[in-house]
Design a protein around this nucleic acid. Structure first.
Lengths: 286, 286
DNA sequence: GTTCCGCATGAATCGATAG
DNA sequence: ACTATCGATTCATGCGGAA
């Protein structure tokens, strides 16, 4: 099995991306800073300037992506003064004009959305995962993200201990490991374009904007082992951590030095799982 | 209790709407014909003409809606030649320009979406329910659509005896009772902007575009009894049937005479439920 | 060694208050 | 008038200490 590399680059994506070779990336999956949020970390891009801020970056993304590659943009417009902002749907139109194909819009249903009560709206429990492509002939490995067919499978698999699930390479030749993979390969159905993942809260000393399941799902769906994944807004590094774990090369770009350090330490402790990679069970909505 | 009226008008919405009094409608909820479908009814509106076809109609809708009213547009763009069409998001921008406020976008997650398999996409399991308003001060009756509390509570509360759970106020002065009453007040939670309804099986001689739960949810949320609901593309009449059942006046417009007849016969057999209306339980995704 | 419960904490949003 | 900050509201989740 080949070696993979996990690279984190500190800097502004608009500049750093120029140093990446064209047609070299298999998947871009990222969650850019939302308009007007994270003001103390990023600049706090104004909604009305969001599209023009993003277009130079996406132009570089279009250059570095392989023709068979995919770009997944996780984003959600905020509500302000009683209305939803339009910058996200304007961005979709602008990206098409830039040359991207708008292939699909996946819905990430956040089961544990932020609480709150207002007179004019309910809690916001979904985000967009917008799929763009360079050509119509992109790679898609649908069998890698299949779901167990019914709840009975979930019950069975829950009984497996954590150590069974993260069984490492040296032990994976044993019979029990093979039994697990038998269970996992049986009675599966294809998923839909609605994904059910809970957000992560405060488990570690940092909080990630999205759970590991989200980039993992798209990485498995759109890349194979030894492919290369790019996250131009690496943030807390979730995409890179997952990519390394399931044996994909990855490049992350992050403007904040302290986040880069955090990612580096996470990457080093992240153990790569090989061969009988423990497939994450994507549960039906539950 | 007042009498309500349920009216179905055969004709083209663009014309028929002109006869409806301004500021007279509390809720518009509709699922218009999608672009390029129902060719023999609406002439098969081409995606590139969809916005210009819709704007004269929505202009009348804006006129007849009360300032406190709401317009719910159930729609989903189709995929063609590997891409999602952009006419829906262009319609959102155009409606704002027409004077509508884009308050929210609800997601209807179709639990049992139509099966199918394609090399470049998964099954489409969601539709947009886009909320537009005339003013920021619209009616919203959030308590009418509350949900039972999530599953997490079951695990935490399962040790409490039944008598503890139904402990009345007079006993709740004790410390333990207060703890219980905290939980008791939490047996209902507000929903989110993601709705989980199954699609209807077309076991009748016509196919309904959406299940009764969908218009029912919005009718309960945005109107009270004796208010007036309008569906300018009545189709199989689901909106009218539900409106009558929960004692709202309603007006439906439908261009196809045979559909109008179908609706009339459905309306007549639909029994109105009064006084202690049995509240539909809106379950968490399941 | 389990199970159970208290607690903090989120890519939130609105309305009021303050500069 | 217009922007900036703050408090109130709300609920699923994971962690850690307790039973």
């Amino acid at each position: 099995m080949k070696e993979i590399t996990t690279k984190i680059i500190q800097g502004d994506s608009k500049e750093v991306l120029k140093d990446i070779k064209e047609n070299s990336i298999d998947l871009i999956v990222t969650s850019p800073p939302y308009a007007d949020s994270r003001k103390n970390t990023y600049g706090g891009i104004k909604p009305e300037n969001y599209v023009e801020w993003f277009l130079p970056i996406s132009n570089e993304l279009l250059r570095v992506l392989k023709p068979t590659g995919t770009f997944i943009l996780n984003i959600k417009e905020k509500a302000e003064e009683g209305e939803r902002h339009t910058y996200v749907i304007e961005l979709i139109l602008a990206l098409r004009k830039q040359g991207w194909l708008w292939t699909e819009e996946y819905i990430w249903h956040k089961k544990n959305s932020y609480p709150g009560k207002w007179p004019n709206r309910f809690r916001d429990a979904w985000e967009r995962c917008i799929q763009f492509n360079k050509t119509k002939k992109f790679n898609m490995f649908q069998e890698e993200v299949m779901l167990p067919v019914g709840d009975w499978a979930n019950g069975r698999l829950k009984n497996l201990s954590e150590t069974d699930k993260i069984r490492d390479n040296s032990k994976s030749g044993s019979g029990f490991g093979k039994n697990i993979s038998n269970w996992l390969n049986r009675d599966k159905v294809y998923p839909t374009n609605v994904l059910h993942f809970a957000t992560v809260c405060n488990n570690k000393n940092h909080s990630a904007p999205f759970p590991e399941e989200l980039p993992e799902w798209f990485i498995k769906l759109f890349t194979k082992q030894d492919d290369t994944v790019l996250d131009p807004f690496a943030g807390s590094g979730t995409t890179l951590v997952v990519a390394k774990r399931i044996h994909r090369n990855s490049i992350g770009i992050e403007i904040l030095p302290e986040y880069c350090e955090l990612i580096k330490s996470q990457i080093e402790t992240e153990k790569e799982l090989v061969l009988f990679e423990p497939q994450t069970k994507y549960a039906h909505k539950k």
